[in-house]
Amino acid sequence: MATEDDTIFHDIESQESKDPSPPLVSDKGPIYHSHPTMLELSGHPILTDFGDMRLVEPMSTDWAMPDISRAPEVLLKLPWTDPVDIWSVGVMTLELLEGKNLFDPVDRENHQYVLPLALAQYIGYLGPPSLEMAKRSPLFSQYFDDQVRAQSADLLTDEWLMKPNDIMGLAFPSQEEPEPVS
């Protein structure tokens, strides 16, 4: 999209030179994370793939797309085709409207993508994938089981929730007032 004032790009360049984004090195070259910005945008959006176009014939299972906008089928390492582009447009549109990313599955301290965090964020916002979709994923047994999500009635008698307060320890601290210290 166009911007009325391009000084923000100089600010980004300055910030990047002071605190460079460490690249994630892949077999296709370095991938750089960018710093969040709040641009004043105008005009019509122009979509681009920044040279990362992929052929999907036959259906691909490549680990593709930026960390913050990876489609569920890519995340689950399932075969994907061009509908992942619709997902990207939706995530990007929300980002432009809200001024922030919906997903942020990156360990900022170690500068790396965290798949379990990504799965948790997706499930937190969208609910679990269908059991059928999850079972097709090579990650199924690592992150899911045949139930995927318990129903509320199932949780009423869950073993963990039925433990007495003293066994739970810090998970459920006592509501009593602490003894005064003299």
Rank of each mutant, 00 (worst) to 15 (best):
M1S: 15
M1G: 13
A2C: 12
E4H: 12
D5K: 03
T7V: 15
I8L: 06
F9C: 06
D11C: 03
E13I: 10
Q15W: 06
S17K: 06
D19Y: 09
S21V: 02
P22K: 04
P23D: 06
L24T: 15
L24C: 13
V25L: 05
V25K: 09
K28G: 14
K28H: 14
G29S: 11
G29P: 08
H33N: 04
P36Q: 01
T37R: 14
T37E: 15
T37P: 07
T37D: 15
L39F: 06
E40Y: 07
L41A: 11
S42D: 14
S42R: 08
S42N: 14
G43W: 06
P45C: 11
I46K: 04
I46H: 06
F50P: 01
F50I: 01
D52S: 04
D52G: 04
M53R: 12
L55F: 15
L55N: 12
V56W: 09
M59D: 05
S60L: 05
P66F: 00
P72N: 10
E73K: 09
E73L: 06
E73N: 10
L76F: 07
K77N: 10
K77I: 01
W80A: 01
W80F: 07
P83V: 02
I86H: 09
I86V: 15
I86N: 04
S88T: 04
S88M: 07
V89S: 03
G90Y: 00
V91Q: 00
T93E: 13
L94P: 05
L94A: 08
E98W: 03
G99C: 06
L102H: 02
F103D: 12
P105D: 10
P105V: 08
R108Y: 14
R108P: 11
H111F: 13
Q112S: 15
Q112C: 09
Y113F: 15
V114R: 08
L115T: 07
L115G: 06
L115H: 02
A118V: 03
A118M: 08
L119R: 00
I123D: 09
G124V: 07
Y125W: 09
L126H: 05
P129M: 11
E132D: 06
M133E: 15
M133C: 12
A134T: 02
A134S: 01
K135H: 07
K135Y: 02
K135W: 00
R136L: 11
Q142T: 10
F144Q: 03
F144E: 08
F144V: 07
F144N: 04
S152K: 09
A153Y: 10
L155P: 04
L155Q: 05
T157F: 08
P164A: 07
N165W: 13
D166N: 07
D166A: 08
I167C: 03
G169T: 10
G169W: 00
F172W: 13
F172D: 14
E177Q: 13
E177D: 04
E179L: 11
P180N: 04
V181Q: 11
S182C: 14
S182I: 11
